[in-house]
């Protein structure tokens, strides 16, 4: 047994003690935090120059992709 093995065993036991529902929270939190950051981006960074149409704002399409992810990990 090396120090690496002992460290690995400690980490494995620590992570194994985390309930799967708490782990699920991480999988939901990742796309959720990106969604919050995305919605805070200024429209100039997410829209084609000169366009004002909401369908041309990439923010909403990206948000849709992330919301599908959140739904998948909440429901699955």
């Amino acid at each position: 047994m090396t120090p690496l093995h002992r460290t690995g065993d400690l980490l494995r036991e620590a992570f194994a003690a985390i309930p799967l529902n708490a782990a699920r929270l991480l999988f939901v939190a990742l796309p959720f935090l990106i969604l919050v950051w995305l919605l805070a981006l200024p429209n100039e960074q997410t829209t084609a120059p000169g366009s004002r149409s909401a369908t041309h704002n990439l923010k909403w399409w990206a948000a849709l992709a992330l919301l599908i992810q959140i739904a998948i990990y909440v429901l699955a």
């Binding site: 990742l30 796309p31 990206a62 992709a65 992330l66 992810q69």
Partner: peptide, 8 residues
């Protein structure tokens, strides 16, 4: 989770 967040 292995594609979509990183792509966005």
């Amino acid at each position: 989770i292995g594609c979509v967040p990183a792509m966005i």
